[in-house]
Measured scan of single mutants.
Amino acid sequence: SRSVIRSIIKSSKLNIDHKDYLLDLLNDVKGSKDLKEFHKMLTAILA
């Protein structure tokens, strides 16, 4: 869910600018399909 993804971003080791950017992107995501794609992208970034 959106709140879980937000929590993953906030607890990541990324610097604050990257976190803010990803949180802004997350706010722009519409629909469950796009949310799944965003989660895939985030997982790849944090891997």
Rank of each mutant, 00 (worst) to 15 (best):
T43S: 10
K19E: 03
Y21E: 05
A44V: 10
L23I: 06
R2G: 04
V4C: 10
I5T: 03
S11F: 11
D17Q: 12
K40L: 10
S1P: 11
S32N: 09
L23Q: 03
L22E: 00
D24S: 15
I9V: 04
S12W: 04
I5C: 05
E37V: 12
S11A: 12
N15V: 05
L14I: 04
L26N: 00
D34T: 06
A47L: 12
H39Y: 15
V4F: 13
N15D: 10
K36M: 13
T43E: 07
I5A: 04
L42W: 04
I8C: 05
V4K: 11
I45V: 09
E37A: 14
G31Q: 05
S12I: 04
H39Q: 10
I16D: 11
S11Q: 11
F38V: 02
A47Q: 11
V29C: 09
K33M: 07
L35T: 03
H18G: 04
N15W: 08
S3Y: 08
L26Q: 00
I45M: 10
K30H: 11
S12K: 02
N27E: 06
I45N: 02
S12M: 05
N15Q: 09
K36I: 12
K33R: 08
K13L: 08
D34C: 09
K33V: 08
S32F: 13
I5P: 01
I16V: 10
M41F: 10
D28M: 13
V29H: 04
D17S: 11
R2D: 05
D24A: 15
T43N: 10
K40H: 07
V29Y: 06
I45C: 04
G31T: 13
S11M: 12
N15M: 09
S1C: 11
I8R: 06
I45T: 04
I9F: 02
L23S: 03
K36N: 08
S11R: 13
Y21V: 05
M41A: 05
G31R: 06
D20T: 15
I5H: 01
V4D: 07
N15Y: 06
A47R: 13
E37T: 12
K13T: 15
I45H: 04
K36L: 13
L35D: 01
M41C: 06
I5D: 01
A44Q: 08
D34Q: 15
M41Y: 11
H18P: 02
A47S: 09
G31W: 07
M41Q: 06
S32K: 11
K33W: 07
